[in-house]
Amino acid sequence: MAVVEWTAHLKTLFPVLGSGPASIEAGTVAAVIAELERRAPGIAFYICDELGRLRRHVNIFVDGEMIVDRRALGDRLGEGSRVFIAQALSGG
């Protein structure tokens, strides 16, 4: 069971998710996103583009490390892995 948290901006955009963290049964980051989409329809297209790739200015960390597979989100999770969905800092 992974423990999943997300940036405050996503909490505002998808209040249905609550403030987290959420416990999600998932073996990969892609499975985490799929489960979030089930709970908060539409959120997957905020995190990823049409091709399922992680958006350029979004980062996902697993146990403190940035994921490697930004194209298919195939990074594997361990039991109790902590997943954090972050937005990159930008100006303006």
């Binding site: 905020y46 958006r55 990159a88 930008s90």
Partner: peptide, 8 residues
């Protein structure tokens, strides 16, 4: 146009 989350 969200800077991070794309166009919606």
């Amino acid at each position: 146009g969200f800077g991070h989350w794309g166009a919606k």
